[in-house]
Simulated assay, not measured.
Amino acid sequence: MNTSQSNGEQLLEINGVELCVETFGDRATPAITLVAGASASMLWWDAELCERIAARGRFVVRYDHRDTGRSTCYPPGQPAYSFTDLTLDVLGVHDALGIERAHVVCQSMFGGSGLILGVDHPDRVASLTFVSASTGADDLPPPSSGLAMPAEPDSSDAAAVVEYVVAGARAFAGGSPYFDETAIRALAERDVARAKSYASTLVNHYAIELDGPARGGFGDIAAPTLVVHGDHDPFLPLPHGQALRDAIPDAELLVLEGAGHDLPGPVWNDFVSGLVRHTEGGRS
């Protein structure tokens, strides 16, 4: 029986901005911080998924990036921060919660944060997990030819924005048999209603320069690393995950059969089991 509960959302002053943070489970257990992908608030790490991880003996942290959810927002197209600033927000969240070292899980574009943390801040990282991420090497396959994204909506029309988010999620599922439109629509409606500025959410992460670590590259990551990738991913096809595994010393690859670029509910058991095994032995 799952008895883990959310410890509630908090608005915390971190690095000169306000970030919304939510935790699950016992603070005395090893900490796992979930870093969502571009334009994704904490809601895209489903609360039930967080509870399942916490029920396996982990203290789970999720938070809203700047320009998502309830965190500080900037005018659309004018993000006053760098990619490194967003990465340092992860450490700021840890500082605010009294976490010395954490197991960090980074999704999609924010795999770049995992790279920066692993190379430039190794003392703060107990392990790394990359979900639906890539090395970005030029010789990797492009997105699937069938990946058709909808036209951007009028951001003042909430219903149109919801339809856009649902259509985007459908495309990124890559024909996965697990795509649940009803659940995604409900999530999109909550996400749009909760955001300070969804117009900013849609564009600002893509308007920043993707700077990297100062001290090296993927080959310099020493933290134990797990790469998680769906075999239906149309945006970053599976060879991206394989290349990431090969680029990081001693990294392991967990392929989620039937998953696209996201983490649909039917693969949660495999994901949670893999993550719990990966994070055994290290404490925050």
Rank of each mutant, 00 (worst) to 15 (best):
A171R: 03
V272K: 03
E18F: 00
G274R: 02
I32T: 12
S41Y: 00
E22F: 02
P177N: 08
Y74N: 14
F24K: 02
P213S: 12
A31D: 01
D154P: 01
D157A: 10
L253T: 10
A40S: 14
S156P: 07
D64T: 09
L19Q: 07
S197Y: 05
A259C: 11
P266R: 04
D180Q: 02
F235W: 07
Y178E: 04
A207E: 15
V60Y: 04
R58H: 12
M1G: 15
E13R: 13
A186I: 02
E252L: 14
W45I: 03
A31T: 14
D211Y: 00
E181K: 03
Y164M: 08
V131E: 01
T68R: 06
E252Q: 15
E100S: 15
G77P: 07
D246M: 08
G98E: 07
V192S: 05
V61Y: 09
H240C: 01
R124N: 07
G37K: 06
A137W: 04
V35I: 15
L12T: 07
Q107E: 13
D220M: 11
Y198V: 15
P249Y: 09
I53M: 11
D191H: 14
A223H: 03
P239D: 13
G217M: 04
T129C: 14
G37F: 00
V267E: 12
A171W: 08
T29N: 12
E51L: 15
R215Q: 14
